[in-house]
Design a protein around this nucleic acid. Structure first.
Length: 228
DNA sequence: CCAGACGTTGTT
DNA sequence: GTCTGG
DNA sequence: CCAGACGTTGTT
DNA sequence: GTCTGG
């Protein structure tokens, strides 16, 4: 699954990867946790352009009575996302990309839980597949939120965990962001095809200190290789 | 009909 | 043990 | 994901 | 909002 990740790549590099006119205003983050604000890239159907947004991690369905439901909807299974009541509306036309340059997974061992930092071999930032949603409170307050899609683990991840976030290849960004399943239902299979495990050969993982365990620890020490 | 759930993970 | 909050 | 709380009354 | 269970 994906319960923590990082985003410390330069705004210029992110603007280039996501083909955005303006670099996003983002400070480096090494321990992004559920309920915190996360940067997303989404398409504006009106203007046919991409935009950045900061939304809360943990999807709050539009029909939720209060926002507390979000803390339990930080991930959505790719296999069932099109059918689940909490996600299906967003899957049709509110998909997004969630920029990251790595994520954490905790391996369960006889000695407890060992965190690992997982990243691309070449160190590039990448995009996780996400959904976003909007919610309006009884008092008119507005909230935007998101969730990260998961799929089965690839060969690299399998020893650590049975699930991993969906990583979208750059050539698939446009389809993921812009297909409208209300108007083009036949393209659902194309979208589902994108939600496959990323190639293990392009990824790498190494153990890190349990310093990362607490969401209060936000420094670069989170990704320091564990010295035994 | 109304009430209550709506999710993922992991563990047993 | 289980739920909520970050 | 992990960390931290988990309760009521009354008083400041 | 929509579906399932009583």
């Amino acid at each position: 699954m994906c319960g923590r990740f990082t985003l410390f790549s330069s705004p210029e590099r992110l603007a280039e990867l996501f083909d955005l006119a303006e670099p996003p205003q983002l400070a480096p983050r090494y321990n992004i946790a559920p309920t915190q604000p996360v940067a997303i890239v989404r398409a504006d159907a009106r203007t046919q352009t991409r935009e950045w947004a900061l939304v809360q991690w943990g999807l709050v369905p539009s029909w939720a009575k209060d926002p507390s439901m979000g803390s339990r909807l930080i991930n959505a299974r790719a296999e069932t996302v099109a059918e689940k009541p909490s996600f299906r509306a967003a899957f049709k036309r509110r998909r997004c990309l969630i920029p990251a340059d790595g994520f954490y997974e905790w391996q369960r061992t006889s000695k407890g839980k060992q965190p690992y930092f997982v990243h691309l071999r070449d160190g590039s930032p990448f995009a996780m597949a996400g959904l976003w949603e909007f919610w309006t409170g009884p008092d008119g307050s507005a909230l935007e939120s998101c969730t990260i899609l998961t799929t089965e683990a690839n060969e690299l991840m399998a020893p650590l965990h049975n699930r991993m976030p969906v990583i979208v290849a750059p050539e698939d960004y446009q389809n993921w962001l812009t297909i409208d399943l209300d108007r083009e239902r036949e393209r659902a299979s194309l979208l589902h095809h994108l939600l496959r495990p990323f190639p293990a050969e392009a990824m790498e993982a190494y153990p890190v200190s349990t310093y990362v365990n607490s969401p209060r620890n936000e420094g670069a020490d989170c990704i320091a290789p564990l010295v035994c």
